[in-house]
Computed example of a mutant assay.
Amino acid sequence: MNTDINHILVNGARIAFNKMRRAQSFNARLYYYAEIGVYLEVSLSHGAGITQESNEQIDEIYKQATHFHMSENKRSRLVS
């Protein structure tokens, strides 16, 4: 059971990040960014069977998503 929740969280964050990278609008990117944030928050739950490894993987995905989101926002302001 512990493995299931860890796979769900990590894969969910990965899927959201991939969708975020393909998103065509600010609102869509923001939605997926927030979704990754939720996965990160859940991964911080103690006693829920979330492993440290899963938490670290999701944290890394969140950091990558933050960098991507900020870069895209900067790029879109320069283009406008």
Rank of each mutant, 00 (worst) to 15 (best):
G49M: 03
A34T: 15
R29E: 11
N18P: 01
T51Q: 04
S25V: 01
K19F: 14
T3D: 09
L40F: 00
A28S: 15
A16F: 08
E56T: 06
F26C: 13
F26T: 15
L9D: 00
G49V: 08
Q57W: 00
R22G: 14
I5R: 05
L78R: 15
I50D: 05
S45C: 06
I8S: 15
I36N: 02
Y39E: 05
L40K: 12
H69R: 11
A34C: 14
Y32S: 04
L40S: 10
E60A: 05
I5E: 03
K74Y: 02
K63C: 01
K74R: 08
Y39G: 00
S25N: 06
R77P: 01
A13P: 03
G47T: 04
E72T: 00
M1E: 14
V79C: 05
N18W: 11
V42Q: 02
Y31H: 14
H7W: 14
G47R: 07
M20H: 07
A23L: 05
M1Y: 09
R29V: 00
I36D: 01
E56W: 06
D4F: 15
S80A: 10
G49F: 05
N55L: 01
T51A: 10
R29D: 10
T66K: 12
G49H: 02
G47S: 00
H67S: 10
